[in-house]
């Protein structure tokens, strides 16, 4: 099999193309270029500091949650409870007595612990109990949502301004949301070079072969869930830093957005093929589409329509790619 076999090699500048195709990132990057170009054309101050940092602050939670989904999808599973998990973490954060748990750092530490717990439950159900992830995480999602509603029957609570201010600020001149994304992606890059990260990919691309090679299937899938939910915690903290309050429905839309971003990013839903960078690209595309629609003055009711088109187009690319490989 040669991914680049059918491509005419017209010059060295195109040498990057086969690599892109192998990663599945090509169509996603193309879409990203198009929506970024449109956004720049429609919004003259796109590159202004305020605009860029506003965009990053807006997109960061989605990016982190989409990358989380990507890690799980790469292990050939799915998690439909991410959005409800974000809501639950957010409600926990907003209902904590902020001063009594060690201030912002304590609140964030608890958020991460809760996320790890949720990820462990999902991971155990899927990897060890052998439940199909689609159904199991759909069910746990309902449980997370129910718990969120129990903790916080209506939107309210307080998340300390300190978290919000820090999120909106910069560290060493770099916007904090950008730093969080950089840390997350670096973390994945390190993991991917490590044995555990390679195992996640191996388990996803061919579970049988991975098992034959002596890779512990269950432990690896559980690891994928745990890694993903740490990213979900970061995403939940990032959105909570913007709403500064709790809302049991806050995360609802992230579940589908994360699956969409994974598809746009060229990550095979069958597992094993693609990279979390694809989900980052997918999340950016989804976010920028919304901006383009706004600045083009198109009625917002078209947003979902256009996003749907983008996802269908991404799926189409994927199918074409699959046929070409076959």
């Amino acid at each position: 099999m040669s991914a680049a076999g059918g491509l005419p090699r017209t010059g060295s500048a195109l040498a990057i193309w086969p690599a892109l195709r192998r990663s599945g990132l090509g169509p996603g990057l193309l879409m990203l270029a198009v929506v970024t170009g449109l956004n720049i054309a429609l919004q003259p101050d796109f590159f202004s500091g305020a605009s860029l940092s506003g965009n990053i602050a807006t997109f960061a939670p989605t990016i982190l949650i989409c990358v989380a989904q990507a890690v799980i999808v790469l292990s050939r599973e799915l998690d439909l409870s991410l959005g409800a998990g974000v809501s639950l973490i957010n409600c926990v954060m907003a209902s904590l007595p902020q001063d009594k748990v060690g201030g912002p750092l304590g609140v964030m530490a608890i958020a991460i612990l809760v996320a790890i717990l949720l990820g462990a439950v999902n991971g155990l159900l899927v990897a060890y109990a052998g439940l199909p992830s689609l159904v199991a995480t759909f069910a746990t999602g309902a449980i997370w949502f129910g718990l969120a509603l129990t903790i916080m029957p209506q939107p309210g609570g307080v998340i300390s301004d300190a978290i919000g201010d820090r999120y909106a600020g910069t560290l060493m001149g770099i916007p904090v949301p950008l730093l969080i994304i950089a840390v997350a992606m670096t973390g994945w890059a390190i993991l991917a070079r490590h044995r555990s990260g390679r195992r996640i990919m191996a388990v996803g691309s061919n579970p049988q072969a991975a098992r034959d090679a002596g890779i512990p299937l269950r432990r690896t899938k559980l690891l994928a869930y745990l890694v993903a939910w740490i990213l979900v915690a970061l995403g939940a903290i990032a959105i909570s830093a913007q709403t500064l309050s709790g809302d049991p429905r806050l995360g609802t839309s992230y579940t589908l957005a994360s699956v969409a971003a994974v598809v746009i990013g060229g990550i095979s839903l069958g597992g094993g093929r693609g990279t979390p960078w694809g989900a980052l690209v997918g999340a950016l595309v989804l976010g920028l589409v919304t901006n383009v629609i706004y600045f083009a003055g198109i009625a917002s009711s078209w947003q979902e329509f256009v996003k749907g088109l983008v996802i269908v187009a991404a799926l189409g690319f994927m199918v074409l790619e699959g046929q070409r490989r076959a």
Binding site: A50, G54, Q242, T290, N291, F295, G297, E304
Partner: peptide
């Protein structure tokens, strides 16, 4: 008059309002 309707998604409404501030 710029009208944006976010649906039930709070994050989307935040993005809408940010875009309005920016414009």
């Amino acid at each position: 008059l710029i009208v944006q309707q976010a649906g039930p998604d709070t994050a989307a409404q935040i993005q809408d309002v940010r875009n309005m501030i920016r414009s």
